[in-house]
Design a protein around this nucleic acid. Sequence first.
DNA 1: CCCCAGGCGTCCA
DNA 2: TGGACGCATGGG
Length: 218
Amino acid sequence: MSSPCLTEVFQTLRTAFGPQRWWPAETPEEVVIGALLTQNTAWSNVEKAIANLRCARLLELEKIAGLEPETLEELIRPSGYFRQKSRRLKNLAATITAAGGLEQLASLSTRKLRQWLLERNGVGPETADSILLYAFERPVFVIDAYTLRICQRHNWLAQDAGYAEAQARFHRELKKDAALFNEYHALLVRTGKDYCRPHRPACRECPLGRFTPHPGSE
DNA sequence: CCCCAGGCGTCCA
DNA sequence: TGGACGCATGGG
């Protein structure tokens, strides 16, 4: 079993953990902001930054686009890399606002929209796909460090598999359903946080234990 | 003290 | 084209 059925994996996680209710945001604009701020950063730190923005009534792209860079830096400081992220978030907010907001961008095809997002400074594949899935509800599977680590550790993917390869596997094998992709990715993050840490053996109670191939069980 | 977190851009061989 | 490196805070 070097290639388990990904639908079966989903059912197992869904039964083990229940619904995850992602993305933890109240509006699509908040998803965009959170997606940028959470890059290589613990979500607990992003929450502090989001709280600062909410408290200042600045949790909107149009308002962020008009802030002084130093002002934004201080608000998002807890989320780390605050100078980079301040510049990138302001640029992204200004570009989206200039384009007429998320509602206007929603008229683009998923392919065009992904391309448009990837052209923004500071927006790579995971950030773009997170925005596509969780802000625009497009059926695009998000690959993150947890997803890659889980798939590699269980030998569902080659050890050197990258973003595109992992995403292709999920797209090939699953029905293109935004609600499914939403829940699936959230469940993989949950699983990774609890059971698939780097440099730590797989935890015994990991619900995915039975999907791990044993030596000689080819 | 250490390592890690829901990445990305740049630089250099 | 691919591997190192910088970016920064906060928690375990």
